[in-house]
Design a protein around this nucleic acid. Sequence first.
DNA 1: GCCTTACGTAAGTGTCAACTTACGTATAAG
DNA 2: CTTATACGTAAGTTGACACTTACGTAAGGC
Lengths: 110, 110
Amino acid sequence: MLDQALRAIAEPNRRQILHLIQTRELSAGEIASGFKVTRPAISQHLSVLTAAGLVTYRMEGTRRFYRARPEGLEELKAYLEEFWADRLQVLARVAEVEERRPKDDGTPGD
Amino acid sequence: MLDQALRAIAEPNRRQILHLIQTRELSAGEIASGFKVTRPAISQHLSVLTAAGLVTYRMEGTRRFYRARPEGLEELKAYLEEFWADRLQVLARVAEVEERRPKDDGTPGD
DNA sequence: GCCTTACGTAAGTGTCAACTTACGTATAAG
DNA sequence: CTTATACGTAAGTTGACACTTACGTAAGGC
């Protein structure tokens, strides 16, 4: 999930979307209207953000109101904090965070 | 540059590389030996990280010793801090970040 | 009922990124 | 000078990704 989140915010449009719905709730259409790309494109971005746990939505009639999901952002933030922190102390805890590690292939003397 | 940095850390192998050279200096070969992908692949990752300002190197004979660049990491961290901070106070500064917004589409109360 | 609105989803396309193998280059060793 | 080492770089392949247009569907308005 953290990997997904990092990938998600690597895309400028998605960061933009996060900004828009960080303070207020917006419908998919309202969000899309602020972008040059088409509405389906934004819809797909919203799916990615949702899958990454960075966004939630609420349905109301025919509309979906999206908003940023604080927990997801906190999780990501925490992961990154730890990432920087590594510089100070390399700890065993890193092993937990690194779920994505390809396969342990004998990285030299950690 | 921030965009490059975000993209750079979105790649698992590159995050792994950053971990390896965050506390100590390592040669390209030493870094590469810890991965499943080939040495040229790692060399390319190192180029990406360098271009993103997250890594520097020092030459010694035929070898290049790489290490994480604290300034780059700080810059990225600062950017992200501000990113989260937006949730608390939406400030004029957002306008700078919001370069992407083509026209105001009546998104409520900005 | 019918038509519009607001959306997601399917399907296809072009581009880019991560990877491979093959090669070029500079230092060091003999 | 010749050979081995430690790299980066060139060139090509593959898969993922951001995007498009076309379509399907559920809720309202009439």
